[in-house]
């Protein structure tokens, strides 16, 4: 579904991704793990069009998307929930969700999708009138995921969806992702909660200093001694 090949990305003169190779197949949850500053966020930003690659190819459903503007990539069904959520803080929850369905195809389906988001996160239905900026961190993350779902993603990319959340909320978010995946959603997940991410993922990539250093089935990586000591603290 998504093929990233030989991807090189730089901020001005500082190169942060080197020859990245990554694939996401339809129906999978793929986890991308690595320490702070390894290049995880940059990779997602480049896939969603927020950053332009220096070199390399990104193909989604057999079409080249590298270098397209974000709204164009969004229209093709690649939806990115960024780190820090990037909600519209002084707009109501319902307005945040509606704007997720801004593009015409999603807009036509928005009432139906809103019902689905509310079923997934009943909390948001209670809070629909509130400004997004006044919600708790966990609720804001629900709005961010809800807004992404409103766009009817074919591939959902999440950057640190559980950052700064209490363990019980982290678990709830992971459960939702597993549930969405069971309903057919393809997911690319960046997380520092390596244990939980590997628990729900089918496959995973390990990124260090801008390069993919390991990849394989999640079970295999979870059993790997080097991964266990570096990322799981075992």
């Amino acid at each position: 579904m998504l093929h990233v090949e030989h991807l090189n990305v730089a901020y001005d003169t500082l190169q942060v991704l080197w020859d990245v190779l990554l694939e996401v197949r339809e129906g999978e949850i793929v986890a991308l793990i690595g320490s702070n500053g390894a290049g995880k966020t940059t990779l997602l930003k480049t896939i969603s069009g927020l950053m332009k690659p220096l070199y390399g190819s990104i193909r989604f459903m057999d079409e080249t998307i590298a270098g397209l503007p974000p709204h164009d990539i969004c229209q093709r069904g690649v939806i990115h929930v960024p780190e820090g959520r990037a909600l519209f803080p002084r707009m109501r929850v319902i307005e945040n969700l509606e704007l997720g369905a801004y593009l015409p195809a999603a807009r036509a389906q928005r009432h139906h999708m809103l019902e689905r988001v509310y079923r997934l996160f009943p909390r948001l239905k209670e809070r629909w009138r509130q400004d997004a900026g006044t919600l708790s961190g966990g609720e804001q993350q629900m709005v961010a995921i809800g807004r992404a779902l409103m766009a009817q993603p074919k591939l959902l990319m999440l950057d640190e969806p559980s950052l700064g959340l209490a363990p019980v909320l982290t678990e709830a978010i992971m459960d939702v992702l597993a549930q969405l995946n069971a309903e057919g959603m393809t997911i690319l997940l960046v997380s520092q909660e390596v244990q939980q991410a590997l628990d729900i993922a089918h496959r995973a990539y390990v990124i260090e200093n801008g390069r993919i250093v390991r990849s394989g089935p999640a079970d295999e990586l979870r059993a790997d001694d080097a991964i266990r000591s570096a990322y799981l603290g075992l």
Partner: peptide, 22 residues
């Protein structure tokens, strides 16, 4: 919708771009 998109761009341009707003 267009008016809300304008407010969205004002408040959080990156979030707006990722929601499909040109």
């Amino acid at each position: 919708f267009m008016g809300k998109a304008v407010r969205a761009v004002w408040q959080q341009p990156m979030g707006a771009a990722l929601s499909g707003i040109d």
